[in-house]
Simulated assay, not measured.
Amino acid sequence: MILEVAMLQVKPGLSESFEQNFKQASTIISKMKGYVNHELQSCMEEANKYILLVRWETLEDHTEGFRGSVEYLKWKSLLHQFYDPFPVVEHYTNVELD
């Protein structure tokens, strides 16, 4: 399983609109092949800052499947106008400590 992590800096004054649009966008991503789950967290120390965590079965489910889909265009139209700067997206895998 892969964890996608994105730090989202939303333009001042747009957090409420962003959160409303994110609810719509959540229905899009949750239907994608390889999607496991996601969560959006708001930062307690810094207004307008969020972290998005999305679990995918494989890296390609996100980078090729979702990002290469028509659904991604809808996701993009709902959310990308809120970010400044545009977020860096990173992918992580679990470290077995046994």
Rank of each mutant, 00 (worst) to 15 (best):
V95M: 12
P85Q: 07
V54I: 15
E90M: 12
P85R: 06
Q41E: 03
E46A: 07
Y92D: 03
H91Y: 12
K76P: 00
V36P: 03
T27V: 10
G13V: 07
L79F: 06
Q9T: 13
H91M: 10
A47S: 13
S69D: 05
S30I: 10
E90R: 13
E39R: 08
P12C: 09
K49D: 00
V89F: 06
R67G: 02
E45M: 12
M1Y: 07
Q81I: 08
A6H: 05
Q24V: 13
E96D: 15
E96I: 13
L14G: 00
Q9A: 13
S42F: 02
F18V: 01
H91L: 11
Y50N: 01
I51R: 07
S30W: 10
D84Y: 13
S26K: 12
L8M: 13
L79P: 06
R67M: 11
D61S: 07
V89M: 10
M44Y: 08
C43A: 12
L97P: 02
T93V: 14
K11C: 05
Y35T: 08
F18Y: 11
E16W: 00
V54G: 01
V36Y: 02
L79D: 06
I29L: 09
V95Q: 07
S42H: 08
H62A: 02
F66D: 01
Y92F: 15
L79W: 06
F82Y: 15
F82Q: 07
F22H: 11
P87H: 10
V95R: 06
I29M: 13
L97K: 06
L79I: 11
E96A: 14
T58K: 15
L59H: 10
R55Y: 09
R55D: 05
K31E: 08
W56K: 09
I51L: 06
N21C: 05
P87L: 06
R67I: 04
Q41S: 08
L53R: 07
M1F: 07
S77V: 03
W75F: 15
L97A: 13
T58Y: 09
Y50H: 05
W75K: 08
C43Y: 05
A25Y: 03
L53S: 04
N21D: 13
H62P: 02
A25E: 01
V5F: 01
K31N: 15
L3G: 01
